[in-house]
């Protein structure tokens, strides 16, 4: 039985000392965030200024801008950066194109049981391992694979392992991260806004363009942070389904043992892309207008 007079020395001590209380609350998460997240990123940045001794092939601490210079001047690095940027944008756009009609159907048309079934279907791939999904796509698009078998009667042959297949694979991997926020956002649009739009003379596409898209822009941006940045950093999709397609990730992976400072410098590129992307999204005001 606890009574009012029972002594609880620790609680009493903490209650009187807000600073100590705050420290005990934040000690663990701050160790994690500062000690692991930020410190490792910082070390990565530092490493990017080091160099590799040409004779011993050992990493030497120092300060050189050669690595960054290479990132911005070597045609192979530039074209890989641009290709990766394009792939990430294509994955994002493709995800939006699939997610909006699906979200509209789920939120406004489908009966409840089908809506729930589709929600499960969207999240189902998340339960499977990442490599499993890439291998699945590899099996579909390989020379003797399902796609070619299915399309053979129509005289259509798949492109083989190449950039379009990388885009498809990455879309397959990251689509749930776009579909779920988009669906949730569409569900929150009052049905009578759709009625009002058609009442005022708008057909389906105009309603989507002028009413739905503006209202779900924050959700699209939230989803695109995942589809865009996860695509920028990926390299296994390119490796297993891309054929000769090189992405930033593939080049980092290739350099990681030979030239770690170069890999570190190159890994700053996707981070920069994401920061620029978020700044542009902020600029458009679409994050605040809601």
């Amino acid at each position: 039985m606890s009574t009012a007079t029972e002594s609880r020395p620790i609680s009493t001590y903490l209650f009187r000392r807000p600073r100590v209380r705050l420290f005990s609350l934040l000690a663990l998460p701050m160790t994690w965030i500062v000690g692991v997240y930020i410190l490792s990123l910082f070390l990565l940045l530092i490493t990017a200024f080091w160099y590799v001794d040409p004779f011993t092939s050992l990493v030497r601490p120092g300060f050189t801008l050669d690595n960054f210079q290479a990132v911005f001047t070597e045609p192979a690095y530039i074209s890989t950066s641009l290709r990766t940027l394009w792939i990430a944008l294509a994955v994002t756009i493709l995800s939006v194109i699939f997610a909006v009609p699906l979200g509209l159907y789920m939120a406004k048309i489908a009966p409840a049981w089908l809506r729930n079934a589709l929600a499960v279907a969207i999240t189902l791939p998340l339960w499977a391992g990442y490599l499993v999904k890439i291998i699945a796509m590899r099996l579909v698009f390989t020379e003797e694979g399902f796609f070619n078998w299915l399309m053979a009667p129509f005289g259509i042959k798949g492109p083989g392992f190449s950039m379009p297949i990388v885009i498809l694979t990455l879309t397959y991997l990251w689509f749930p991260y776009m579909a779920l926020p988009v669906y949730t956002a569409i569900r929150q649009i009052p049905t009578n806004l759709f009625d009002a739009s058609s009442d005022l003379g708008a057909r389906g596409f105009m309603t989507i363009y002028r009413v739905v898209i503006p209202l779900i822009t924050p959700a699209i941006i939230a989803g695109s942070v995942f589809t865009f940045s996860l695509s920028l950093g990926d390299y296994l999709a390119a490796r297993f389904t891309g054929g000769a397609t090189q992405m930033i990730g593939s080049m980092i992976a290739a350099n990681i043992n030979l030239n770690p400072p170069m890999a570190a410098a190159f890994s700053m590129v996707p981070i920069t892309f994401v920061v620029i992307y978020l700044m542009v999204a902020r600029r458009t005001g679409s994050l605040e207008r809601m």
């Binding site: 806004l193 009625d195 009002a196 058609s198 009442d199 009413v211 209202l215 809601m290």
Partner: peptide
């Protein structure tokens, strides 16, 4: 609805919030 020359004022107004 978009092919009829009638318009509606909705119970909760249904103004586009954005």
């Amino acid at each position: 609805p978009f092919d009829r020359n009638v318009n509606t004022v909705f119970q909760d107004y249904a103004l586009f919030p954005h």
